[in-house]
Amino acid sequence: KRPMNAFMVWSRGQRRKMAQENPKMHNSEISKRLGAEWKLLSETEKRPFIDEAKRLRALHMKEHPDYK
């Protein structure tokens, strides 16, 4: 399984929150809205998620050196 990218790290928490606030909303609609919100974030707002994704990628490479 591939490590999560920055968007996936961010959206994991956001998706849960949005699903709780809008229980009838379909997952595909939640995904569209999350994608639009992510695009509006500044580089500074994205930075912690980018850093976490880098950390996860490095850990994955260490644990699975033969993974392509």
Results as ranks from 00 to 15, higher is better:
residue 31 S to K: 12
residue 4 M to C: 03
residue 14 Q to F: 03
residue 67 Y to N: 10
residue 16 R to K: 11
residue 38 W to I: 00
residue 39 K to D: 08
residue 68 K to D: 15
residue 66 D to S: 10
residue 6 A to P: 05
residue 65 P to S: 12
residue 53 A to D: 01
residue 15 R to I: 09
residue 60 H to E: 15
residue 46 K to L: 00
residue 7 F to Y: 09
residue 58 A to W: 07
residue 37 E to V: 04
residue 6 A to G: 13
residue 37 E to P: 00
residue 19 A to F: 08
residue 26 H to G: 13
residue 8 M to A: 14
residue 48 P to Q: 04
residue 30 I to F: 00
residue 67 Y to C: 14
residue 64 H to W: 09
residue 61 M to S: 14
residue 26 H to L: 13
residue 7 F to R: 02
residue 26 H to C: 14
residue 54 K to Q: 08
residue 58 A to Q: 12
residue 24 K to M: 12
residue 63 E to A: 11
residue 14 Q to V: 04
residue 48 P to T: 03
residue 61 M to Y: 13
residue 13 G to Q: 11
residue 6 A to Q: 02
residue 19 A to R: 07
residue 42 S to C: 06
residue 52 E to H: 03
residue 21 E to T: 03
residue 42 S to Y: 00
residue 55 R to S: 08
residue 37 E to K: 08
residue 22 N to W: 06
residue 62 K to H: 10
residue 15 R to D: 06
residue 46 K to C: 03
residue 27 N to S: 13
residue 13 G to S: 08
residue 5 N to V: 02
residue 26 H to Q: 13
residue 23 P to H: 02
residue 49 F to C: 02
residue 18 M to W: 08
residue 35 G to S: 15
residue 25 M to D: 03
residue 18 M to L: 13
residue 42 S to L: 04
residue 10 W to M: 05
residue 22 N to E: 06
residue 30 I to Q: 05
residue 61 M to P: 13
residue 44 T to H: 09
residue 47 R to E: 12
residue 45 E to W: 00
residue 51 D to S: 11
residue 61 M to T: 13
residue 9 V to N: 04
residue 7 F to W: 05
residue 38 W to H: 02
residue 28 S to G: 06
residue 67 Y to I: 15
residue 4 M to V: 15
residue 65 P to R: 11
residue 45 E to S: 05
residue 64 H to G: 12
residue 53 A to G: 02
residue 14 Q to I: 06
residue 36 A to D: 14
residue 42 S to I: 01
residue 29 E to S: 03
residue 68 K to R: 08
residue 49 F to G: 02
residue 2 R to C: 12
residue 2 R to H: 06
residue 64 H to V: 12
residue 58 A to R: 09
residue 63 E to S: 09
residue 66 D to F: 05
residue 26 H to R: 10
residue 55 R to P: 03
residue 40 L to M: 14
residue 68 K to M: 11
residue 56 L to K: 05
residue 26 H to D: 15
residue 30 I to S: 02
residue 60 H to K: 14
residue 27 N to T: 10
residue 45 E to Q: 11
residue 25 M to H: 00
residue 68 K to L: 15
residue 9 V to I: 11
residue 23 P to I: 05
residue 20 Q to F: 07
residue 11 S to N: 03
residue 56 L to D: 04
residue 29 E to Y: 00
residue 45 E to P: 01
residue 59 L to N: 12
residue 60 H to A: 15
residue 31 S to A: 09
residue 35 G to M: 13
residue 59 L to E: 15
residue 66 D to H: 08
residue 60 H to P: 13
residue 7 F to L: 01
residue 3 P to L: 08
residue 25 M to A: 07
residue 61 M to L: 13
residue 67 Y to A: 14
residue 36 A to P: 02
residue 24 K to H: 10
residue 31 S to V: 13
residue 56 L to Q: 11
residue 37 E to W: 01
residue 62 K to S: 12
residue 26 H to F: 04
residue 56 L to W: 04
residue 37 E to D: 09
residue 41 L to F: 03
residue 45 E to G: 02
residue 59 L to C: 12
residue 49 F to P: 02
residue 32 K to C: 07
residue 2 R to M: 10
residue 7 F to E: 07
residue 34 L to K: 00
residue 56 L to V: 07
residue 44 T to A: 13
residue 3 P to G: 11
residue 11 S to H: 00
residue 49 F to S: 03
residue 11 S to I: 02
residue 18 M to I: 09
residue 22 N to S: 06
residue 58 A to K: 14
residue 20 Q to D: 15
residue 11 S to V: 06
residue 62 K to M: 11
residue 59 L to V: 12
residue 10 W to N: 09
residue 38 W to S: 01
residue 11 S to C: 12
residue 5 N to S: 11
residue 23 P to Q: 04
residue 50 I to K: 14
residue 40 L to K: 13
residue 8 M to L: 10
residue 52 E to M: 00
residue 1 K to M: 12
residue 41 L to N: 03
residue 39 K to M: 09
residue 24 K to V: 09
residue 5 N to R: 02
residue 1 K to R: 06
residue 39 K to E: 14
residue 29 E to T: 03
residue 17 K to S: 06
residue 18 M to S: 06
residue 41 L to G: 01
residue 47 R to T: 08
residue 37 E to Y: 04
residue 64 H to E: 15
residue 2 R to W: 05
residue 45 E to L: 03
residue 68 K to S: 14
residue 12 R to K: 14
residue 64 H to M: 15
residue 52 E to W: 01
residue 37 E to I: 05
residue 38 W to G: 02
residue 66 D to Q: 11
residue 26 H to Y: 06
residue 49 F to M: 03
residue 50 I to R: 12
residue 9 V to A: 04
residue 9 V to Y: 01
residue 54 K to M: 10
residue 48 P to F: 03
residue 67 Y to L: 12
residue 66 D to C: 10
residue 38 W to E: 03
residue 47 R to A: 12
residue 40 L to N: 14
residue 59 L to D: 14
residue 11 S to M: 04
residue 46 K to M: 00
residue 7 F to M: 05
residue 61 M to F: 08
residue 3 P to N: 07
residue 59 L to P: 11
residue 21 E to M: 01
residue 45 E to N: 01
residue 50 I to D: 05
residue 55 R to L: 05
residue 38 W to P: 02
residue 12 R to M: 14
residue 63 E to V: 11
residue 57 R to M: 10
residue 3 P to A: 09
residue 16 R to I: 13
residue 10 W to A: 02
residue 67 Y to T: 15
residue 17 K to D: 08
residue 60 H to R: 10
residue 1 K to T: 10
residue 32 K to L: 07
residue 14 Q to N: 04
residue 52 E to L: 02
residue 43 E to T: 07
residue 42 S to D: 07
residue 38 W to Y: 05
residue 40 L to S: 12
residue 22 N to V: 02
residue 15 R to M: 14
residue 59 L to S: 12
residue 12 R to N: 13
residue 8 M to T: 08
residue 47 R to Y: 02
residue 22 N to H: 13
residue 2 R to A: 14
residue 61 M to A: 14
residue 35 G to Y: 15
residue 1 K to A: 07
residue 48 P to M: 02
residue 62 K to P: 14
residue 60 H to T: 14
residue 47 R to W: 02
residue 34 L to T: 01
residue 31 S to C: 07
residue 30 I to W: 01
residue 43 E to W: 07
residue 13 G to V: 12
residue 46 K to P: 01
residue 13 G to E: 15
residue 19 A to E: 15
residue 67 Y to E: 12
residue 38 W to L: 00
residue 39 K to Q: 09
residue 68 K to H: 08
residue 67 Y to H: 13
residue 18 M to C: 05
residue 25 M to P: 04
residue 45 E to C: 03
residue 62 K to T: 13
residue 42 S to M: 02
residue 42 S to E: 02
residue 43 E to R: 05
residue 28 S to K: 08
residue 49 F to R: 00
residue 55 R to V: 05
residue 53 A to R: 00
residue 6 A to E: 05
residue 67 Y to D: 15
residue 38 W to N: 03
residue 26 H to I: 07
residue 47 R to I: 05
residue 51 D to Y: 08
residue 15 R to P: 05
residue 11 S to F: 05
residue 4 M to H: 04
residue 7 F to T: 00
residue 3 P to M: 05
residue 4 M to G: 07
residue 32 K to V: 08
residue 48 P to Y: 02
residue 16 R to T: 14
residue 67 Y to G: 15
residue 29 E to Q: 06
residue 1 K to G: 10
residue 66 D to E: 12
residue 28 S to D: 11
residue 65 P to T: 13
residue 54 K to Y: 05
residue 14 Q to E: 15
residue 11 S to L: 02
residue 8 M to V: 10
residue 1 K to V: 08
residue 64 H to Q: 13
residue 8 M to R: 05
residue 27 N to V: 07
residue 61 M to V: 13
residue 41 L to E: 03
residue 49 F to Y: 10
residue 13 G to K: 04
residue 36 A to E: 15
residue 22 N to G: 06
residue 65 P to Q: 14
residue 2 R to D: 15
residue 6 A to Y: 01
residue 63 E to L: 09
residue 9 V to T: 02
residue 68 K to F: 08
residue 63 E to C: 05
